[in-house]
């Protein structure tokens, strides 16, 4: 039982990170109908910027303080992600509005390649560290309930907490602020939003900026855990089933989908993996999403659409 709970919690925590990346997908999709395959490349790009600047800045400024260095690097990385967002809107997105979903998807694949290439040209392509002072040691919990308690990875726990905080603050941003309302109006109906004077291109830049920040946070969390390296960009691929499960247009869907996939992956790997040779977590999530798609093509929270003729 304790072991099961441990696995479950581990799943929930990694699921929270998936939710974070999935949220990036959902935001952009809602606002512009683009399924942003470049989200993973953005995670890598942001993490690279963060890692390298936190390494370079102390050198340039001749100081040792880790916290200040990280803070400065974070600021610079945010600025860089804003520039990236703006460039993407400027150079690609605005010419592609109203294209079919598949075309847009392929375009973001192209963007992902460009980001990967530029990121590694500027920042290098080795493995880099991000050290934001995350505690590494595990802790015991619920010792009173279970014999021996359950082992929790503190780092995962804090990561999940940060992700949850970000998700909550974004939800508040969308619900309460004027920009958030404008965003939702755009998500509901582009033309209508435009006709009441909401500037579409500005909204898109904002959404991509927000997606850039989620990418940065996800990149920092993952990067401090696994090191910043090229494989980070495949995180988008891991988060994809999440979005499918949750429905592309639903924020709660992204969160719950993330948790389901996180837990499903861990449980399957632990309980099913040994029988089939292990390593199944990648495709397991996809199969889960696939089976789910067949029964509910619109996702958990998406709306059913009847095609017009």
């Amino acid at each position: 039982m304790a072991f099961f709970l441990e696995t479950l919690l581990g799943g929930l925590m990694s699921g929270m990170l998936y939710s974070l990346v999935a949220l990036g997908f959902v935001l952009i999709f809602k606002a512009s109908g683009v399924f942003n395959f470049a989200q993973g490349a953005m995670v890598l790009f942001a993490a690279l910027a963060m890692a390298r600047f936190s390494e370079w800045i102390p050198g340039w400024m001749g100081m040792e303080n880790l916290f200040v260095a990280n803070l400065l690097a974070f600021t610079v990385a945010v600025a860089i992600m804003f520039v990236v967002a703006w460039l993407i809107e400027r150079l690609a997105l605005r010419y592609l509005v109203n294209q079919e979903g598949a075309t847009l998807l392929m375009a973001t694949l192209g963007i992902a390649y460009v980001l990967d290439g530029i990121g590694q040209t500027i920042f290098g392509s080795d493995i880099y560290k991000i050290d934001v002072g995350m505690p590494k040691e595990p802790v015991m919990m619920l010792e009173s309930v279970f014999d021996g308690g359950i082992l929790i990875n503190k780092e995962d726990f804090i990561a999940a907490l940060i992700a949850a905080l970000l998700v909550i603050s974004l939800s508040i941003f969308f619900q309460k602020t004027a920009t958030g309302r404008a965003l939702r109006a755009v998500a509901d109906d582009h033309q209508a939003a435009q006709s009441i004077g909401i500037p579409l291109d500005r909204i898109w830049v904002i959404v991509w900026c927000v997606a850039g920040i989620t990418a940065l946070v996800a990149g920092i969390i993952w990067g401090s855990k696994l090191g910043v390296q090229f494989s980070l960009s495949t995180i988008a691929l891991r988060a994809l089933p999440v979005v499918i499960l949750g429905g592309l247009t639903s924020v709660p869907g992204a969160i719950i989908g993330g948790l389901i996939i996180g837990v499903g992956e861990k449980l399957s790997e632990v309980y099913l993996g040994p029988y089939v040779g292990g390593g199944i977590e990648i495709w397991f999530a996809y199969m889960l999403a696939l089976v789910f798609l067949l029964f509910r093509p619109q996702g958990l929270f998406g709306e059913k659409i009847i095609d017009r003729v």
Partner: peptide
């Protein structure tokens, strides 16, 4: 060699976006 492969990425990526547009 690494740079060459990165430039390759950039060129492919840009061409894809270019052609789609």
């Amino acid at each position: 060699i690494a740079l060459v492969s990165h430039v390759e990425f950039i060129i492919f990526g840009s061409l894809i976006v270019f052609f789609l547009i």
